[in-house]
Amino acid sequence: MTSSLNHDPYISLSKITKGYKISGDDVPIFSNLDLEIPGGDFVAIMGPSGSGKSTLLNMLAGIDRPDTGSLRIGTSRLDQMSEAARASWRAHFMGIIFQFYNLLPMLNVAENVELPLLLKPLSAKERRSRVEKVLDLVGLTGRARQYPKLMSGGQQQRVGIARAIVSDPALLLCDEPTGDLDRKSADEVLEMLRFLNRELGKTIIMVTHDPQAALYAKRTLHLDKGNFVEERRAAL
């Protein structure tokens, strides 16, 4: 299935095949998967367990590689890059938001948020300034010295979002970002993602099981057995 908005595709998957060996047997996940996502889109990907959502997200994050086919994001061909190059690409062009926040408990909020900036040639002052700005943006002003375990789930996810956007990546990948949150906190987080998409122009791809979360996206793609079977566009 090929989808696009009015823009040139920012993400382009063409004839992707991917499978795993489980107990010696080849288990195919994708065969000839095509997908195009323009820059500035906010896409929710839904589907039952085993449909390939996580595999797709891992390939988009450069954590996993397709067996065959082409995977381009921006001008980078992720399918042709080495693992080290993909790690470097992640550091510069992408932010990840995790279901369980994945904050380092021994680091405080500012130190957690600062992590991606350590991969860039920035001075300590510049890093501090960027961390302060992004904490303001996610509503955590004054919480820089606090440790994650003292914060609510919603607050921790906001730290996770701050960490994902602190290096100003064009692409945000969200893996069940509200899966561990109550409804109120989930809505706050989703509002924030919508803000990042609409106001800051971030391209967001969000894997979710939650239909209400998917409503915040501009469009929702349904995956089943390695194929996109349905597309729903949000009312403008």
Binding site: A61, A84, A87, R90, H92, F98, L104, L115, P116
Partner: peptide, 14 residues
């Protein structure tokens, strides 16, 4: 495990 995988996913090197 999770901490190492997290920072690696953020782009930290092997």
């Amino acid at each position: 495990t999770v901490e190492i995988a997290t920072v690696r996913a953020l782009g930290f090197s092997r």
